[in-house]
Design a protein around this nucleic acid. Structure first.
Lengths: 202, 202, 202, 202
DNA sequence: AATGAATGAGCCTTCATTCAT
DNA sequence: TATGAATGAAGGCTCATTCAT
């Protein structure tokens, strides 16, 4: 008698195991066998729950993005003012669980594969668009319309850039520094939004 | 007597072929055979010039970083004022040849491997340190000492973040937009350096 | 549920196939592919049962030595007198199944590798020590103590020397001649043990 | 202008290098490149002096056997009595330079290949026949005709067996012990030749 | 004569995937 | 549902051999 509801549980187990394997071995050395071992199951069973290895990897990426999305939604819900919304977005990007060695390794590894996988590229574009859209929405009442787009892109880049540098240096764990830097950047820009994208001053 | 001076030429050919292969197939699908094919040589010869695949990949990364370094050095040499030095650093980071699909793909792919390869991680840290050091040096006479570090990190992150977002979206080729955004950011911060890292204003 | 108990069966099959391959192609030309073919399995499966090629080869050697040991044990058990024990040891060394072209080829091939493989060297030393020890034990009540060691070494050498010469000449198959020569040597020495190791007479 | 007489010199250098390589790496790991390195020449040149790798290996074996032959010839020449001739043969088999780690490794390795190489097998048979023939010749006036053959084979086996056991144990270097054991054996047999090959006594 | 660059076949090993149980 | 045995296709690497210089 097949246990009901096992499917989502197993799939989640395997996604977690995939993340753990990418963290320990790197994406290039992550094999079905290693994922199965981390999940405590046999290699064969993975193809019962996922079409193939790529499918599992894609689902892993989707899972990571979904967590990010939930964090953003939760924090935006309790943010009352536009400024608070801005900071909520920043906070969501540097949540402890995302800003960990384990998860960073997975992101970094999957980034490298995005170019080859249309599916992966698509959801990554989606994440980028959502981050930008959230920022644009929050900025609309804070800066003049012509500057909204550039400022949103600037904040998003600042977030991704800080994350990337921390991830590559292995300086994950403490998200306070990148968070503070981003907040400072946002505040500085809000005080002088008119200077954005105006090019080098003479 | 065998052809003299072949060594550096062949090594360069193979590094170029590796970049091309990473661009076309992705790092995960880049094989010795594919690199050899792109270089128009037989697979066996690669081990005449490189210890193994990892060695070639490492050399490829080093080559990319070296180009970046040369651009920076060249531009910094002709920059007379501190402000000009700052912009020279930004320009060097978004040079056409680095900001191409081909090269971006290689960077992205190799980033994902850095965690597993101490050698790769080391030269990446070196690049990060150099970028920061260049920025710090240029900023010293422009902003108050306590803000130099954070501003340097902010600019570096902005550069890397913009590059990352462009690379992932496949929006490489036209470096004018990220360049303009960075310049604008730099100028804005120079006008109000005191606000950097001061946290959210009330 | 997968077939149970396959492990020892397959391992044995593969060891046999390795012996067959060494016999047909020689150790130097024995490849995983050839062993797999002889065993009627795919090359990949070998690494399911053995760590690597060396591991399989080591196990093959161990198997050959184990058979030898069993023969010795069985014959020694039914030998009542010291003299009978001596002859039992000789008989065990020239058993039909060991004294075959197939097995001899394997021994010869593996001998050549012993110097490079500490594991192989170790079990070979073990075999040598055991043969000597068995002989010493049987000789103790037959010859004076000072001659036991030398005589044991002499008999062991006679056994190995006869085997080697037969193996190299391809004169395996009929073990009666080397057996008879050894027995004769043993008897001759037992009649005049005092002359052993006494050096050339003037 | 090609140097005259280089051919035999180079060939000898390469044979020596082959022996050194077999000693250090084992026959299985001995490559053209390693032999060339030991000889201080480039890999390519080897095919100027030998048809192929097998040819060089064969020549190496022939060289080893030739040395053995010269030793025997030299010692036999100065032996006046049949008994002296017998001991001269034994001495020649345990000469210091043959009874060394380096040379033993080569013998052992090449033995394993003899089965696959008709040429190798042929010269090995030749050595065996010569050793036997020398012994037979020396024994003719010492023992009764019916025992000559068996005693010769017995002595030859004792020599080869002692050598094999020493070689496998790495106990080369001091040839005195095996020499003494062989001499003792010979003397014992000469005193009671009638017991040879007479089977177990009642 | 000599070099070492270059080839290409072949080897060991890994691994995603399938399948009998 | 779950196992792990089994397959077969690559992949990285080695190496004997050839060849232009």
């Amino acid at each position: 008698m097949p246990k009901l509801g096992m499917r989502p549980i197993r799939r989640r187990q395997l996604v977690d195991a995939a993340i753990a394997s990418i963290h320990q071995y790197g994406l290039g050395e992550t094999t079905i066998a290693r994922i199965a071992e981390k999940a405590g199951v046999s290699p064969g069973i993975i193809h019962h729950y996922f079409a193939d290895k790529d499918d599992l990897l894609f689902e892993t990426m989707r899972h990571l993005l979904e967590i990010l999305r939930r964090h953003a939604v939760a924090r935006l819900r309790s943010a009352k003012t536009p400024r608070a919304r801005l900071h909520a977005i920043v906070e969501a990007s540097f949540t402890e669980d995302q800003f960990s060695e384990t998860v960073s390794a997975a992101w970094l590894g999957l980034y490298g594969n995005a170019r080859q996988s249309p599916r992966l590229a698509r959801i990554l574009r989606l994440y980028h668009a959502r981050l930008r859209s959230n920022l644009v929405h929050a900025l609309k009442s804070l800066v003049a319309p012509p500057h909204v787009g550039d400022l949103a892109e600037g904040i998003a880049s600042m977030i991704d850039g800080l994350w990337l540098r921390c991830a590559l240096r292995g300086q994950t764990g403490d998200a306070r520094i990148p968070r503070a830097l981003t907040h400072a950047y946002v505040e500085a820009q809000l005080l002088r939004p008119a200077t954005m994208a105006s090019g080098p001053s003479e």
